Amino acid sequence: MSWTEVIIEIAREHAEGLSDALMEAGALSVSVEDADEGTADEKPLFGEPGMVPEQAAWDHSRVVALTDEGDDQAAIVAQAAAIAGLAQAPKFSTRAVADADWVRLTQSQFEPIHIGKNIWVVPSWHEAPDPDALILEVDPGLAFGTGSHPTTRLCMEWLEAHPKPGKTVLDYGCGSGILAMVAKKLDAGSVVGVDIDEQAIESAKLNAERNACEIDFYVPDDFVASAHGGVQFDTVVANILSSPLKLMAPMLSGRVAEGGSLILSGVLARQAEEVAAAYAPFIKLGVWAEHDGWVALHGQRGAASAPPARDGSNGGK
């Protein structure tokens, strides 16, 4: 089977409405791009993670709609223009999309990821490069966390460098459950994962089952109501974003047992001081390591001063 892309260049104020209208008129999928991409007029739209853009499209937008090859593309565009309330159907061009083995093509983009000294994250369609390593079988999906992002990598490296056999671990904002699984495979005792996204919880449960890891996963309300609700943990790791991390400072700090460790990531290097300041009344945090502009902060409950950075450095990698 083959498809035809319909390409329409249009002003920002009409891009979102036309996109929705194209889907209603029969398009299989629609994306919006910067029509000036690659030129001197290209403009960034999105800020740092967690920020909602003020505009939903670019001043000079390109709307790309995927249709079946046999569809009447002109009719689809005309119908969409009418639905969107445009005075007339916009000009458009088309581009053929050849058939392909999309599953194989997608899988080829994801190779095993080596993290730290001895961790491999391996998609299910690959053989583990080192069967004696700590192997996590995780397929890319909707839940965040395959180890490819610097913040996930930093947390995994901290857990590997500080194994806690038999100790309790809380992974708050667990996403795919990858950090909880690393802790469990490093012989932690009771491990709990929490996430606000129910889809992430389902993904994490499937990943844990696939990797033979006994972990309890909850959405926040169920976590509070569970047997773990009033429990403190020897290690608490939270890989989220700076704004929610600051808001959760009293709660996350209160989940750390006396002498236990708190590890935070999802924090840009320029945000480290303000995040540490939010936790200062509870736990003194310092930068443990930095990677690609992101940092991992670490502190110990009851410690008088911030812990040293990895390898005794200032946190740079």
Rank of each mutant, 00 (worst) to 15 (best):
I10V: 14
A11H: 15
R12T: 10
R12Y: 12
E13C: 13
H14M: 11
A15W: 09
E16A: 12
A27V: 09
L28G: 07
V32Q: 03
E33N: 12
E33Q: 12
E33C: 08
D34I: 13
A35I: 11
E37P: 11
D41H: 13
D41T: 10
E42D: 13
L45G: 10
F46H: 10
P49T: 09
P49I: 05
G50C: 03
V52R: 10
P53T: 08
E54G: 10
E54C: 04
A56W: 09
R62D: 07
L66K: 03
D71H: 12
Q73I: 10
A74R: 15
I83W: 08
A84L: 12
G85F: 13
L86I: 13
L86E: 09
L86F: 14
S93R: 15
V97N: 06
D99K: 10
W102K: 12
R104K: 15
R104T: 14
Q107T: 05
F110A: 11
P112W: 13
I113N: 08
H114D: 10
G116H: 07
N118K: 10
W125V: 07
A128I: 11
D130G: 10
D130K: 12
D132M: 13
L134E: 08
E137C: 14
P140W: 11
G145M: 08
T146Q: 06
T152P: 06
R153N: 07
R153V: 06
C155T: 01
E157R: 04
W158Q: 01
W158H: 00
A161V: 03
H162D: 01
P163G: 04
P165T: 07
G166Q: 05
K167G: 05
T168N: 01
T168I: 03
L170F: 02
Y172G: 02
G173Y: 02
G177E: 06
I178K: 00
L179Q: 01
L179I: 07
A180H: 06
A183W: 02
A183P: 04
A183R: 02
K185A: 07
K185M: 08
L186E: 04
G189V: 02
S190D: 05
G193Y: 01
I196F: 13
D197H: 12
D197Q: 11
D197A: 08
S203D: 15
A208G: 07
A208V: 06
R210N: 15
D221W: 09
F223D: 00
F223Q: 03
A225L: 12
A227D: 03
G229W: 09
V231H: 01
V237M: 04
A238G: 06
A238M: 02
S243R: 13
L245I: 08
M248A: 03
M248W: 02
G254K: 08
E258T: 15
G260E: 00
L264K: 00
V267C: 01
L268H: 09
R270E: 14
A272Y: 03
E273T: 11
V275A: 03
V275F: 02
A276E: 00
A276N: 03
P281G: 02
F282P: 03
L285M: 04
H291C: 07
D292W: 05
G293R: 09
W294N: 01
A296G: 01
G299V: 00
G299F: 00
R310Q: 03
S313H: 13
N314R: 15
G315P: 05
G315C: 04
G315A: 07
G315F: 02
K317V: 13
